[in-house]
Design a protein around this nucleic acid. Structure first.
Length: 317
DNA sequence: AAGGGCATCAACCGCCCGATA
DNA sequence: GTATCGGGCGGTTGATGCCCT
């Protein structure tokens, strides 16, 4: 049984807001503020609207200094960087873009930016549907049950993975970026990235992708220690020991690169993308790093191993 | 010109979480 | 400790306009 509705659904108006309603809401809030209670607000001003609807209207449209449309390349870049890093946390992403709302960014991502970045493979193989991406209804369009049945990542995770692997040079899906527990020592995606490092153990090879050290330098020994801690963390995330991870690695490799897998074909298509057009700007950004990490720290561990977990579930590891 | 499909975006829905009684 | 409430959030829907055939 769900909770009681926040308002009397039968007596509230739904649908587009009229200019009169906008004016009422705007003038009241500008004069009195929200009063700390959105639910009560529409009654105060005689609006037959749900309080949540008023809140949304104010935050997404009426609030001062709201920008609509006209996303710049820089904003595109920030959105993409953050989406790869933290997923569909639109409110956090919006916090990095003054004047933008989470709804606006979400719409922009879903309708344009995602296609700009991920949709290119359709252009490069114009005759076919994406091979095992979930379609818009969450169904797997791939007719091959052997492939479709096990590869059921959520679209968000898969998109992040795809973007991420583009960043990773198609190396490893288990990467630094997806293990945010490791982040505090670094600012991700700095534009003066210098550290490209491939880390190998007997079980897992992973690439530490462009990192901008928060400190000016890091000694090689410190880097090695960090590498080891990352491997340990990755293994911990996967719930594997170093002795058992060889099999995992093989299985993953088979899944991702084997003859039967179409996953890698998806990834290969990214290689065909025009780097200048699509991803050339990736890696530099204008983030307010301090405030970003403040918001990241406050968001319940960031689903820190979310992608890894989905990977494990999706591949039934 | 018509109409079918697609893209866009405002708005809604329902869930989660923290505050409070 | 628990129930209730409101705020906040992400996902989804529906209306609208545009484009293509």
């Amino acid at each position: 049984m769900g909770r009681a509705p926040c308002c009397d659904k039968a007596n509230v108006k739904k649908g587009p807001w009229s200019p009169e309603e906008d004016a009422k809401l705007k003038s009241f809030i500008e004069e009195h503020g929200t009063g700390g209670n959105w639910i009560a607000l529409p009654h105060k001003i005689g609006l037959k609207r749900c309080g949540k609807s008023c809140r949304l209207r104010w935050l997404n449209y009426l609030r001062p200094n709201i920008k609509h449309g006209g996303f710049s390349e820089e904003e595109d870049q920030i959105i993409c960087n953050l989406f790869v890093s933290i997923g569909s946390r639109w409110s956090i992403i919006a916090a990095q873009l003054p004047g933008r709302t989470d709804n606006d960014i979400k719409n922009y991502w879903n309708t344009r930016l995602k296609k700009k970045l991920l949709g290119r493979r359709r252009d490069s193989s114009s005759t076919s549907q994406p091979r095992h991406l979930p379609n818009e209804k969450g169904c797997n369009p791939n007719p091959n049950p052997n492939i479709g049945s096990s590869l059921t990542l959520t679209s968000s995770a898969l998109e992040r993975l795809q973007l991420h692997m583009q960043l990773q040079g198609l190396n490893s899906p288990f990467s630094f970026y997806n293990n945010t527990a490791l982040w505090p020592k670094f600012y991700p995606l700095g534009n003066d990235c210098k550290l490209f490092q491939t880390i190998s153990t007997d079980a897992i090879t992973t690439t530490v992708y462009p990192l901008k050290l928060s400190q000016a330098t890091m000694e090689p020994s410190e880097q090695a220690n960090l590498s080891n801690s990352m491997i340990t963390s990755l293994q911990g995330s996967l719930g594997i020991s170093s002795s058992s991870s060889s099999n995992l690695d093989i299985e993953l490799h088979d899944l991702l690169y084997g003859k039967e897998s179409q996953f890698i074909n998806e990834m290969e298509s990214f290689k065909e993308m025009n780097i200048e057009e699509g991803m050339g700007w990736w890696g530099s950004n204008g983030l307010d790093e301090k405030s970003l990490f403040t918001s990241l720290d406050s968001t319940s561990a960031l689903r820190s191993d979310f992608v890894l977990q989905e990977y494990r579930m999706g591949y039934d590891l």
